[in-house]
Structures are given as structure tokens and as C-alpha cells.
Nucleic acid binder design. Structure first.
Length: 260
DNA sequence: CAAGCTGTTAGCGC
DNA sequence: GGCGCTAACAGCTT
């Protein structure tokens, strides 16, 4: 589920289903999900209610009426499920039962997700060493960030302490749309490259979030739709190739994305 | 059946 | 300390 646009979608989902309802019961799943003792989650959440939610990068912070936040990191396969019936999904790791009979599960089959309790957003951001949220980053600050950055541009963009919210899929998309080879060294990027990357980052995150909430696919011009080796590049010439960068499968078009 | 996957972390080497 | 690489985590899909 989880890069910035998907988490933004989960935020809307939870805002529209689960705010301002008293939690009457808490069911807890696998130990490894919980970053504080499980009994703390039970104590803090029981009788409490969500009043708002916030997002930093790939983290969703649910603000509690009686102080603090429940923080969700979705891992690779986490998602929220709000329901009224009695069948709890198979891999639910946390289920909250509200006073009105509604229930909210954090479902996470691969158990790469994490749940935290924290007192403040600032403290949590610091603790996790999170960089600026990608869609709140100003153009000038984006340029500034790259002044001191070395190594491959793809690795830089994936680094959550550098910029929070980008992952494998949308970093590939940004670089594709910007015509930049993923192995390009950050120090070799010029002003124009950075301008393009910034514009495309904002565009892509915005467009994908909209598509997600409207339930429509992303544009066919997106690499996302053609992320297979040997597939034709949506720009017309070239075939998509796969290489490893920073240990992650990286798709790009050798015709559109030159090495610098 | 083996390999790959939207994410993160630890450990190693340079 | 920074950067690159690997393995590990766990379950489902191809």
C-alpha cells in the first residue's frame, strides 16, 4: 500500500470513517508490529477516541482526544479496513471496536508494518529521523538539499531522512518523467535537472493521490503502467529495462533517461 | 517451485 | 561519517 499517495488515501479513509467515536475494545495481533508494550496500546486506546489525523511521509499519525498519537507505518502490504460485520480480516494486527458498532482493523499480512505510540509529532519526527514531507517541500529547499548530496540520485530520493514519503515506485516515475538515469550521481545534477525533478515530484504525488481517491488508473503515459522488462516505453521509442540500484529493482527507459 | 515485491534495518567493507 | 551492497523480515503472487 505504502508510499506518500497511498498513505494520503489511508488518511482520507480513516478521517471519513473513524473520527470522534469512542473505542470500547482493542484486539492486538503479532508482537513484532508493536513498538511499545502491547498493554500500553490497550491502556491508551481503550475509552479514547481519534480527533484528527496527520501525515509525515509514509507515516500516519492518529491524534487521540486523551493526549498523544497512535502512529501507523504500513510496511509493504499494510492497510486499514473499516467494517460493521463480524468477520475480522485474516491478517488484522490491530482491531478497534467503536461504541457505535463500527470496527477499524490494521491489516498487515507480511508484518512489515509498525504501530507506535507517541506524545508529539515533533518528537516522533525526530525519533524516526524523518526529512521534510515531500509535498510540503519548497522548491528552494529541494535545491538546497541536493547541494551536499552524493551518491546515486535514486538512493538519495529513497532516503526517508532526506525527503520523507518517496519509495521505489514513484522515485522511478520521477526519474523517468524527468529524463534522468537512476544511476546518475546527485553531484552531477544541474539546476535544470533539479527543477524538472521537483516539478515532476509534486505533479506525480498529486496526480496519483487524486487517481487513488477517484478510483481511476494513473495516466497511460506513466512508467507505472509499463513497469515490465521489454515493454514499450510510453514515449514511443525504446524498451523498458530493469537494473538494480541501491538493492532495489529499478525500471527505466534507456532512450529517455541518459546517464550523466 | 522458485523468485520477486510498494519498506526498513543491521551489518559489513571501503 | 557517508555510501554501496547484502541479508533478513513474511506471506502472497507469478
Amino acid at each position: 500500500m505504502p508510499e506518500l499517495p497511498e498513505v494520503a488515501y489511508q488518511k482520507l479513509y480513516v478521517d471519513s470513517t473513524s473520527l470522534h467515536q469512542k473505542i470500547v475494545k482493542v484486539d492486538l495481533g503479532a508482537d513484532k508490529i508493536f513498538q511499545s508494550p502491547k498493554k500500553d496500546f490497550e491502556e491508551v486506546l481503550t475509552g479514547n477516541e481519534f480527533v484528527a489525523s496527520h501525515q509525515i511521509g509514509k507515516y500516519l499519525l492518529m491524534e487521540l482526544k486523551d493526549k498523544g498519537f497512535l502512529v501507523i507505518h504500513f510496511g509493504m502490504t499494510g492497510k486499514l479496513d473499516y467494517f460493521q460485520h463480524n468477520e475480522i480480516q485474516k491478517h488484522a494486527q490491530l482491531t478497534l471496536i467503536f461504541e457505535n458498532g463500527g470496527k477499524l482493523s490494521f491489516v498487515c499480512p507480511r508484518k512489515f508494518g509498525k504501530l507506535f505510540l507517541t506524545e508529539s509529532i515533533g518528537a516522533f519526527r525526530k525519533q524516526q529521523n524523518l526529512g521534510p514531507h515531500a509535498t510540503e517541500l519548497k522548491k528552494a529547499d529541494f535545491h538546497k538539499l541536493f547541494e551536499k548530496k552524493k551518491g546515486s540520485v535514486k538512493t538519495a530520493l529513497m532516503d526517508q531522512s532526506f525527503i520523507a514519503g518517496l519509495g521505489n515506485l514513484y522515485v522511478d516515475e520521477m526519474l523517468f518523467q524527468s529524463g534522468i538515469h537512476p544511476k546518475t550521481k546527485s553531484e552531477n545534477l544541474n539546476k535544470k535537472d533539479l527543477d524538472k525533478m521537483y516539478k515532476n515530484m509534486v505533479d506525480i504525488l498529486d496526480t496519483v493521490t487524486k487517481c487513488k481517491t477517484e478510483g481511476v488508473p494513473v495516466p497511460d503515459s506513466y512508467l507505472r503502467r509499463h513497469r515490465n522488462e521489454e515493454e514499450d516505453c510510453p514515449n514511443g521509442k525504446g524498451k523498458i529495462e530493469m537494473i538494480k540500484v541501491g538493492g532495489r529493482s529499478t525500471y527505466f527507459c534507456p532512450e529517455c533517461q541518459e546517464v550523466k
